[in-house]
Structure formats: C-alpha cells, structure tokens
Amino acid sequence: MTKVLELRSVVKAYDNKPILKKISFEVNSGEIFGLLGPNGAGKTTIIRVANHITAPDKGKVILKGRNKARFLSKKIGYLPEERGLYKKMKVTEQVLYLAQLKGLTKEAALKKAKIWFDKLEISTWRDRYIEELSKGMQQKVQFVTTVLHEPELLILDEPFSGFDPVNAELIKKHILELKEAGTSIILSTHNMGSVEELCDRIALVNAGEIILTGPVKELRKQYSEGMYSVVFKGHTAVFSNTLWTGGEIVSIIERDEFTEAIVKMSGRISIKDIIRAIIEKVEVVSFNEILPTMNDIFIKLIKK
C-alpha cells in the first residue's frame, strides 16, 4: 500500500492559541480513513492543512511523496461540511466551472458530468439554477463537483448530512465504489454508524491531539470489556451456577423457547473453559462477544 497523504508533526496556532499540537497520520491508497472528534477538536483545521488551504506553522504535509505540493491539490476532491454553491449558476455550469478550476477541459468535464448526473439521478435538473434546487439535490450536485475530476484523495466532511436515508445509501454506495477503484478517502463525521460501516482506520482527535488511531476492528477489540451474549435453552439458575466465578450476568431475558444472557466475563477462567462447562449443563444456541461500538469508545475517551 502506498501512502497518498502524510501529515508529520503538524503544528498550527491562531493568535498564539494552539489548534493542532503535533498531528501525525497517514492515509494509504484505497482506504477510508475516519477523522473523528468532538466539535472544536481541530478537525476542520486538519482538513484545511491536508487540503493545502492553510499552511502548518511547523511540520510537513506530504502529498504523494512530495512536500509543499500545492500544485498537486488538483488531485484532491474536497466536500466541506458547510456546503455551498453559486446560487445564480446553473447546475451544469457550476459543475463545469469547478472541474475546469481543477484542470479538466470543458469537454472532458462535460462527459464526466453526464455520467455522474445519471449515477446520482439529477440529469433532469442539470439546466436548473442552483437556487431552484432542494437542499438534498444541491448536496448531490456538490458531491458531483467533488468527485468529477477523479481525485486520488477525497476529503469528505460529514458527507451524509442533509440526505434522506435513501440518498444517504446512494452516496454511501458511490463512496465505496470510489474506494474500490483505489481512491483514498478521509471521512470526517460524527455518525459513528457510518464509521464502523465504512472506515478501515480512524484517528480520534481531541483538543488538537490524536488520542487514538488504528484499524476500526482492532480498536473495538482493544476496548472490549469482556461482554458476551449467550443464548441457551435450559434453566437460568443452572446457567448461573455453571458460570460461577467465570463471569457475572449483567442482564437476562427469558423467552418462551430460549433465554438470552448478557455476561461480563471476569477473565479468571478462559472463555474456552467457560463454553465447555456451559455446554455440559444447558443447550447453547449462540455465544457471541459484544464489541463496544465506536460511539462507546468515542464517548468513553472524550469524557476522560
């Protein structure tokens, strides 16, 4: 995997107030990198630095192996959180204008625009003025302007906000397609569901520092609290006795056919031994580890 973007010890301050304190991370080709953090953590500044809109006070921003590669910013597609288009321009004009600013010829841009208009079902709106469009429709146009020039790095800030579930799904589908095609994507969002669903790796930013980074699956494992869901047929008391010092039942739901117990394992007895012991006494339907959601991890770490 090749590094598409790398931030090395980036420091940025405004009015002597530190906004970013030695931020370092990298985004590899073909991965979705989640940039998480509470409001005011410095995400927007990180994005601006990555985008070469603002220069860091210290540290390096390396795009495709090159430092100070402002001219390479044409390889970036940026969807800011606060969306905006020229209201007095027609959809096609707007898309062509922004694509030409990114270095595409008018003809090439037009060809690509047609394809994307079809993909996002906005072809019939292409001669309308932006101000005549609904918010969701404008968002779609903005998405097209972001991806039209086939950027190698996409920076998406809250890409799903403002979309209804159907359209959010549509956008998600296209984001995944772009990833499959090898595009690297930085996804900044508060929607933890989409982080778990889409992101390969994340960085959690708080107060200008990265306090957690790594692959989503590993992080969830790392923050696992030993919670398991056990579904079985048999007496609850027998199950409870069998567990003994191996774990503590957090909650239990008895249904007609089977019982579901949420158990917090103590770690004193290995999971293998516990399973073996339970199987002898009750009929086990399923035994699953409950991993913490990114939401849980986020709240836990930020509250610290």
Partner: peptide, 16 residues
C-alpha cells in the same frame, strides 16, 4: 457571497 455560501473553501482548495 462566496464566504457566506462557503463555496470559497472549495475554490481555494484548487485556486490560490
């Protein structure tokens, strides 16, 4: 207008 629209952020990501 460009600032209120926030489009300026997109533009300056490709233009000085």
């Amino acid at each position: 207008e460009e600032k209120v629209n926030r489009i300026v952020e997109v533009i300056v990501s490709s233009v000085k």
